[in-house]
Design a protein around this nucleic acid. Structure first.
Lengths: 221, 221
DNA sequence: GGTCGTTTCAAACAGGCGTTTGACGGAGAG
DNA sequence: CTCTCCGTCAAACGCCTGTTTGAAACGACC
């Protein structure tokens, strides 16, 4: 009929499975899979408990659906360019960092994807396996190519891996350590401006690091 | 009577609360607070369920005790020098990174502290508040001083904060993303050699970044 | 030997969990 | 109208959670 979110409060507009999905996404992202109960979801969605098991077969299947949709949403809203290495490698790195930051914070969707991923990395469910193959490995390969471009030479697999993790680690830190950061800087909130400056900083930091990086000779692998 | 860990298998040697603590530490670090049940702990420790509530008042108090002991253990095994800024600032940074890495991996204690911290950062319990005050804020201040030393000038609080997080983020990434990393590199295990190279890499990366970092003018705070 | 405080134990407690059931009601088709 | 399918619902299912209970066993002291 009408839009789903721009309506009178406490009024059911979307279909039951849609409402369940929406609420479940929010709760899973807030509290993780374990701490979120089916009754919490059903009550918040204003539906019967049995509706969750009726429309989705069980809680884990619902979670898998939530994760899949959040991933699709994040990648479609902030798509990675088909080829990062098109232009200047340092510009490609800037774009890479920007996209990952945007996906992780994603203010339009309450940073759902970032939180879900953080939970998934700590306590993986079966839903993670597919994401590793389809998403993370290709992303790491893309980042590796960018790094080789910035460095000018290929430092070998082990060093390349650590360089990737150094860059990605800077980014995902803000999601993984979220509750800690909000305790250390209670006043600081991550609005668009802060996120932009964050992306600029990580790009600047990483490019400076790569430019001045003394590549060690590989001894393993 | 005798030592606690170097004994015949399946034999109870330590006192009941000691056994509970030992097993609970292991299980909490593996599965987090929520997924670990009191019955799991009591069975693994070979004691009655009620023993947990008898010796420690409840599950949360036991967890707080575990966290406190793990923290003490990590800081005493890998103590931070009273003043990092004693020698050359870049050497101080090397030492800082090395200590944090050692605390997080801590192979002698099954990397317990790192895992517990990772869980605590994602889903903080009340036990976190104390650690923020006593541990993280002072650590960040120490790292800030080191960074100012390496840079040569004070870049201001916002930039300094981001620089701290860029360095710490690289380190804690290996704990937060642990399950993911083991899926992406199934053969790679983090033994002493790998950990040493890891510390060297992060130090090299960070120093190069700080040396070449173009400090932006602060606009906020 | 008797007594006291401490520790252990099987059993039960109340409550929450994910899931299933069977009845109810409305809408569309024959 | 009747039949059927689909969605919803209150209620219950069996299981597991953290915690408590009251009795039994223990060791030390007088």
């Amino acid at each position: 009929m009408s839009n789903s979110s721009t309506n009178s409060p406490e009024q059911h507009t979307a279909s039951t499975p849609a409402r369940i999905l929406e609420v479940a996404t929010q709760l899973f992202a807030e509290n993780g899979f374990e701490k979120t109960t089916v009754r919490q979801i059903s009550e918040a969605a204003g539906v019967n408990v049995a509706a969750v098991n009726y429309h989705f077969s069980d809680k884990e299947a619902l979670y898998a659906e939530v994760l899949s949709r959040a991933h699709q949403c994040a990648t479609s809203l902030h798509p990675a360019r088909v080829a990062f290495e098109a232009g200047h490698p340092e510009e490609a790195l800037r774009e890479f960092v920007g996209i990952l930051i945007k996906r992780i914070f994603d203010r339009e969707h309450n940073q759902v994807f970032g939180r879900l991923m953080a939970f998934e990395m700590m306590q993986p469910t079966r839903a993670l396996e597919r994401l590793v193959e389809q998403e993370f490995l290709p992303t790491m390969k893309a980042l590796s190519r960018i790094i080789v471009g910035v460095l000018g030479i290929d430092p070998g697999p082990a060093v390349l891996r650590r360089l990737c993790y150094s860059i990605v680690g800077q980014i995902v830190f803000y999601k993984h350590a979220g509750p800690l950061l909000s305790r250390m800087n209670p006043t600081l909130e991550y609005d668009d401006k802060e996120i932009t400056e964050l992306a600029n900083h990580i790009t600047r930091f990483s490019i400076a690091a790569l430019r001045g990086y003394q590549i060690p000779r590989e001894q393993d692998q």
